[in-house]
Amino acid sequence: MDRTPRLLPREFVVKIHSRCNLACDYCYVYEMADQRWRSRPVRMSAETFEWTAFRITEHVRTHALEHVDVVLHGGEPLLAGMEAIRGFLTSVRSAIGGVARFSLQTNGLLLSEDVLSALLELEVRVGVSIDGTAADHDRHRRYRSGGGSHAAVARALELLQEQRFRPIYSGLLCTIDLANDPVATYEALVSFGPPVVDFLLPHGNWTSPPPGVGAYADWLIAVFERWYRAPSPETSVRIFGEIMNVLLGGRSRVEGIGTTPTSTVVVETDGALEGPDQLASSFHGAAVTGLDVTTASFDDAARSLVPTGLPLPCHDCEVRAVCGGGLLAHRYRAGAGFGHRTVYCADMFRLIQHVRQRLNSDIAALAGRSR
Rank of each mutant, 00 (worst) to 15 (best):
H17I: 04
L78H: 02
S112Q: 04
F199M: 03
P9K: 11
H63P: 06
V246E: 02
Y28T: 00
M1H: 14
T52I: 02
S361I: 11
S232M: 14
Y228E: 02
L173R: 02
N360M: 12
D2W: 14
A84D: 05
L178K: 14
P311R: 12
G214I: 14
I96H: 10
D136P: 01
H284W: 13
R19G: 12
L111F: 03
D218P: 00
C323M: 04
L359Q: 06
G256H: 05
V237T: 10
A296G: 02
G337M: 04
C20S: 02
R226N: 11
S117E: 09
R350T: 14
A135C: 04
V288L: 11
H137A: 00
Y332C: 07
H137N: 13
H137C: 00
L328I: 09
T308K: 07
R356E: 11
P311W: 09
S236V: 15
D69T: 10
A365D: 08
L273I: 10
A217W: 02
L65Q: 04
Q278P: 15
G75N: 00
V322F: 01
E76W: 06
E318P: 02
T52A: 09
A151G: 04
E47Y: 04
N107A: 00
E50V: 03
G368E: 15
I56K: 11
H203N: 12
R251M: 12
I168C: 01
Y228H: 10
Q35S: 08
V246M: 04
T342S: 14
I352N: 07
T185V: 08
T295W: 09
V29S: 04
D138G: 04
F199N: 02
G75V: 01
P167E: 06
A215S: 14
D34I: 07
D131E: 10
F338K: 07
H137I: 00
R144S: 01
S170Y: 13
H63V: 03
P233D: 10
S208D: 08
P167K: 06
V267A: 12
P313D: 01
P9W: 13
R371A: 09
I130M: 13
A152I: 07
M44D: 04
V13R: 13
E47S: 02
A95D: 13
P231G: 09
G368V: 15
G337V: 09
L248W: 05
L279I: 04
T106R: 05
W37V: 02
N180C: 07
S91C: 00
S361K: 12
R358G: 05
D277H: 10
F88T: 11
V13M: 13
T269P: 06
T308Q: 08
E50K: 13
R6H: 12
V293D: 03
G171V: 07
A215H: 14
V190P: 08
W37A: 02
N245T: 07
F224H: 07
T295I: 10
I96L: 11
D177K: 11
F54K: 15
A151I: 05
G97R: 13
G81P: 01
